[in-house]
């Protein structure tokens, strides 16, 4: 369990245990707000199991990916609300 994976969250490098979810990496990076809702309110994971869609972030340029069900991978780029990754076009 000593294996670590390094990825970037909103441009900052974060190292997490291998097998950790992107949701875990985002919180480990000190980010509390994953996305903004359609009326602009702050949101973060609710269900933790791929149901509620509140943890959607942009992963490697693809918007609306589920942070809670995506395992971290070396070199992954994650963008949350702070990077405009919540409602952005993701281009």
């Amino acid at each position: 369990m000593s294996a670590r994976v390094t990825l970037s969250v909103d441009g900052r490098a974060v190292a997490v245990a291998a097998g950790a979810s992107v949701a875990a990496a985002i919180e480990a990076a000190g980010v509390a707000v994953f996305r903004h809702s359609v009326t602009g309110t702050a949101r973060a994971p609710l269900c933790g199991m791929g149901i509620c869609q509140e943890c959607r972030v942009t992963i490697d340029g693809e918007p609306h990916r589920l942070a809670c069900q995506t395992a971290c991978a070396e070199g992954m780029r994650v963008e949350t609300a702070a990077a405009g990754g919540s409602r952005g076009v993701g281009r």
């Binding site: 997490v16 245990a17 097998g19 950790a20 979810s21 949701a23 875990a24 990496a25 919180e27 480990a28 994971p45 269900c47 933790g48 199991m49 809670c68």
Partner: peptide
């Protein structure tokens, strides 16, 4: 609980 099991601190 699920989030914590997946590494959320």
């Amino acid at each position: 609980s699920a989030l914590v099991k997946s590494g959320t601190p």
